[in-house]
Every structure is written in C-alpha cells, then in structure tokens.
C-alpha cells in the first residue's frame, strides 16, 4: 500500500516539477531539492488531493514539505 502511494506521489511530483523520477527520493524536499516555489507546493497538494480523493486542510498542507511527508500523510489518511 505504502509502496503504491510512494510511486504515485513520485510520479505526481515528477510531472508537476518537471524532475526525472529517478532523481526523486523519499527524502527529497520539494523546495530545497526539487526546485519548487511556494505556489508549486500549493499545486502539489491539490494534485495529491485529486489523486487520492482526500481533502488536505491548509494547516496540514504546511507540514507537507517533502516526498516522505506526503507519503506519511496520505498513508495515515488512508487508514
């Protein structure tokens, strides 16, 4: 389940930030490692909402700064 979430998240991040999926690790920070700006991170969260059919409130979205943050958040929501 978690591996599936990870694969989907890495795909979304790669698409939106135009980064090769091979260069994306769970540890990758959207801003520091993958070149995202503040607007990109907002849009990423919207894409996660769309993909996983969840709603991510703004206060939670602020905590999603890396691929791992996103995986953990979505996995927790899925439980």
């Amino acid at each position: 389940m978690s591996a599936e979430i990870e694969a989907k998240i890495i795909k979304i991040v790669g698409d939106q930030l135009n980064v090769d999926e091979g260069e994306i690790n769970p540890d990758s920070s959207f801003v520091d490692d993958l070149g995202a700006d503040s607007l990109d991170t907002v849009e990423l969260v919207m894409a996660f909402e769309e993909e996983f059919g969840v709603e991510i409130p703004d206060e939670d979205a602020e905590g999603i700064q890396s691929v791992q943050n996103a995986i953990d958040y979505i996995a927790a929501k899925a439980e």
Partner: peptide, 10 residues
C-alpha cells in the same frame, strides 16, 4: 474554492 489553482491569476 479549493479547486482554484495557485497559478490561476498569474
């Protein structure tokens, strides 16, 4: 409102 992209205005 949550479906409005942050890039909508720019």
């Amino acid at each position: 409102a949550r479906k409005i992209s942050p890039f909508f205005i720019p």
